[in-house]
């Protein structure tokens, strides 16, 4: 072997040594299971019984299942409420905190604290806040002369109640991302625009918003993926009730697989979730012309 070949072999050996743990993990814990999940999504496989090939039945069954459509609708409503509320809340907070204020650190900490707490524990706290008879929210409303709804036990309010809690928990995280985005806006741009006579409102729409569009894009994509996968909150607060009003995709997968032990069907639903996330993300990338990367 020439020195060059020997060196090439040695360099490759080192590199594969370095990537070995993660690449093996990728094969065994991601790619392998995904292929296996795809295969069992075409089987009737109830735990304890022998698997049986059923073709597309697990998929076609969903189309005619009203619960599936309800779950899909709930997940979409959750995402459509959660994303704009969190984005607007986080952006407004970031704009307000992106200045020389006294006590800025303390204020920022207050908005950020819910981010680090466990969803399970705060879901329990919010269930108590939402308690129709003795919860803090309805007590406050009562002192204002308003009779509050049943929140989590109310068909109409249950899902929005979970959204409110999710926004409360997630707004601080995204506020930090927007703060970082705002710090990247060069102040020369604002100064130049000011000289040209642009008002602050105009500068906000013409400079700040386009300049932070990469951050906004990132935030929206992450919120979307997160919203599609919401689980702990509805599991803890409502178990999907009342009457499936808060039943969402992942909760539905969990129930199908680990309450009813229909593994094949649950795999099919998880693939539908995957495809939905994929399509919506690709659409976002397709329509991402508003995102301004070149500054």
């Amino acid at each position: 072997m020439s020195t060059w070949t020997r060196r090439w072999v040695r360099d490759n050996a080192w590199a594969y040594l370095f990537i070995a743990p993660q690449i093996l993990g990728l094969l065994v814990f991601v790619i392998g299971p995904v292929i296996f999940a795809f295969v069992i999504s075409f089987m009737k496989w109830d735990i304890g019984s022998t698997p049986e090939w059923v073709g597309l039945t697990n998929y076609s069954k969903q189309v005619s299942d009203p619960i599936f459509w309800k779950v899909l609708k709930n997940t979409s409503v959750f995402a459509l409420l959660n994303i704009p509320l969190t984005v607007i809340g986080a952006l407004v907070l970031a704009l307000m905190l992106n200045q020389n204020l006294k006590g800025k650190t303390l204020l920022r900490a207050a908005y950020f604290i819910p981010v680090v707490t466990s969803s399970v524990a705060v879901a329990l706290v919010w269930t108590w806040l939402y308690n129709p008879s003795y919860g803090l929210i309805n007590s406050v409303l009562m002192s204002l002369g308003i009779e509050g709804p049943g929140w989590l036990s109310d068909m109409k309010w249950a899902l929005p109640s979970i959204v409110i809690m999710t926004v409360w928990q997630g707004v601080g995280y995204n506020m930090i991302l927007f703060l970082a985005g705002l710090q990247g806006v060069p102040s020369q741009l604002h100064e130049a625009a000011k000289i040209d006579g642009a008002g602050s409102w105009q500068r906000f729409w013409r400079i700040t918003i386009p300049m932070i569009s990469p951050t906004t894009f990132f935030v929206v994509i992450m919120l979307l993926i997160g919203s599609m996968q919401v689980f702990s909150e509805p599991y803890m607060m409502t178990r999907g009730g009342p009457a499936d009003a808060t039943n969402v995709l992942v909760l539905h997968i969990y129930n199908t697989a680990f309450q009813f032990f229909r593994m094949g069907e649950a795999s099919a639903i998880s693939f539908i979730l995957f495809v939905i996330i994929l399509i919506v993300t690709l659409i976002q990338f397709k329509f991402s012309k508003w995102v301004n990367y070149d500054v």
């Binding site: 814990f29 991601v30 392998g32 299971p33 995904v34 296996f36 999940a37 069992i40 993926i225 599609m228 996968q229 992942v250 997968i253 697989a257 593994m263 649950a266 795999s267 998880s270 693939f271 979730l273 995957f274 996330i277 994929l278 993300t281």
Partner: peptide, 10 residues
């Protein structure tokens, strides 16, 4: 891009 729920069952 693959959600963790897909690999959960296998």
């Amino acid at each position: 891009m693959i959600p963790g729920q897909v690999t959960l069952i296998p």
